[in-house]
Design a protein around this nucleic acid. Sequence first.
DNA 1: AGCACGCCGACT
DNA 2: GTCGGCGTGCTC
Length: 752
Amino acid sequence: MPVAIDVLLPLPLGPLQWLVPYGQAPGGVGSTVVVPWQQGIRIGTVTGIETVSDARSLELREAIAWLPDDVVLPSETLKWLLAEADRTVTPAGTLLASLSLPRLRRELTHEVRRLDQASAGQDAWQAADTIAEGELRELREQGLLEERVTPKIPTDRVMVPIAEVGDARLEKASRATQKTALEELSARGWVGSGSELARIADVPESAIRSLVRNGFAGYEERPKPSPEVDLTPPPEPWPASLIQPAQRPDPQLSALMGGTASDRARALVPLLLNDIAQGGWPIVLVPERRLADQLAAWFANDLPVALLPSELGARERSVWDRCLFEEGARVVVGTWSVLATSVPKPSRLILFDAGSDAYKLRSGARTWIPHAAQNWAEQHEVPLTITDVLHDPESMALVPDAAPPRTLPLPRPAVRWVLSDLTKTHSWPLSDEAIRVLKQVQDRDRQAIILVPRRGFSAALGCRECGAAVMCPNCDLALRWHARDRRLRCHQCGHDTSPPPTCPACGSLDMEAQRAAGSEWVLRTLAEAVPELPRYRYDGDVRDDLTPLHAGQPGVVVGTTALLRLEPLPVLSLLLVSQVDGALHADDFRAEVRVLRLLLRFEHQAGLRNPLGMIQTFASEHAALRAFVSADPEALHQELTRMNQRRARFGYPPHGQLALLQASAKRIEDAMDALRAAVARLETAGAEPDEILGPAPAPVARVRGRALAHVILRTGNEARRATLLETALSQSTRGVKLRVDVDPRDIGDVLE
DNA sequence: AGCACGCCGACT
DNA sequence: GTCGGCGTGCTC
């Protein structure tokens, strides 16, 4: 019986079938194979092998070749990949592509040898593209073609000297610059480009052009040099910190909470050492490349660590493979693609900073990586350990609830936090209290940091008396105040109502839109209030040089979350949050956790100092803020538990599963109609009313000329969510594109 | 993702 | 009358 292979290509498709390559020893499931594809060839991963009927085999083409020197994707990983595709209602190939495995992106030379031309000698290999596509196909079908592929060695085009340095033809005054350039070029052997040579030799580029035109120098293809894998430990590996590492390893540790990134990394070291001692290969998954570099550098002092670079090409990857296996590295650190590594025996998956926003893939499969990582650990039967800034309900749900949960909380810096009630002040955007403290900072030559909200969205309608915002009855969200048409709307489910005459919480008549002031406004206020205090701005637009502050000079720096990456300031005496209300009432049930996360990170800007912390807010009675400023770990923990209970009531993650169904069309009515039709299908299929929120126009309802609307699905479990999504997508409307985001992190995202 | 096919607006 | 826009459909 003929043998066929299922091949997954890094394209938005499921596995497709080919016959095994003719006359070659078969590779197995998980190996890499080259197949004919449209006009050329593609590299894919084998997901299955089976015998097929003769009739079927006649429909199939043969694969071209196995790539035998490649790493095999472990069968657990493959199973996980296919299950993830089902879970996220995405073609498996899209997911495979998102892992950006260098071995699938290898450049290959494709050569063929015709067997129908008797005259052709043994070495009659010719480039495949010298034969017309139709003829190639025909020759293949008739079995008159041998094919082979060889990896292209990546090359750089470099400039090399051709003439000798003493060449008499260059001994003319008019060719003095060419002579200089040639001498420089000969001394170096080669340069990357002509303009580079011009710069080095300090001659005009025209001189280089002449040099080439006259045949004194030329271009040459050179193999790319191997990248330097630099794992030199940094001189001062662990940044200054309050936290002592826990020295007793706890192999059951499932969660590590609090501290700074370096605190958390350091606290993981005993655990990692323990894993290695047991013969395992722990894998550390991080949200961003930057953090991978940092973590690998910190670990390098204590651990045999390998950094898995996700963006490198095939050659670089093979360098990394060698570095891993020959130099005895045992801890693998990397972003999302570490989940497709093949280490001999993975012992644990560490999901570093599970709450990071960067864990959401923003195109393709749009995977929320922590969820996928949890499934990965389950499929590979290794324990999952997470770290996070706080006990986020969603992070905690990723690890099994042992009793008691094996979590290691790291202590908070000693900041004395107070809330400054904006309903009780007349100065704006800085309260009287804040200005008073800033004056002290000025008088005592100290430093202050002011965190301002990002560019705001439309405001909530809040009460000036009690600070409460008007909430949506369906969604646990503050309604957005649309000042122009004087309506309150929910950006999730579309609930639309007129403003209440009095505050629903306290009955006050004093309702107003809660505005947010950006960095420029705050800086202007500072110029009036504390003119002697040097001012700095640090946000996405302007990055002032903060060297004087780091040297201990007095001053105040105003900025957005960019501030969170700064080294702590030496004489800091005030951390001020100019306004949290916008973020607190964002269109999202995660808003409160996000705010707490932000505040906890901001707090670490205190470093080893213990400054005053002040949060300006209209909602000074807000339980989450109260818990944060209380400095009582138990209070914060209880508040997170309460949030978790509230999520349970509304069926939000981690208690329910969300999916965003987005429709885009030229006209908003068409998008809404298509969604209404999808909702009707869902209802026919037995969806409960409270499983469907919307349809509603998207918060940003028009993007690049396309109107956007959405429906949120809220289901009890993943299988049901997948079924409902299939139902919703089962019919299409002309001119309307339906797209899906499973585990959405932001309902305002535009799906590509 | 590519690539072909197909149907409507602005131009040598 | 053609060139070219991108909407839709297919790839073993």
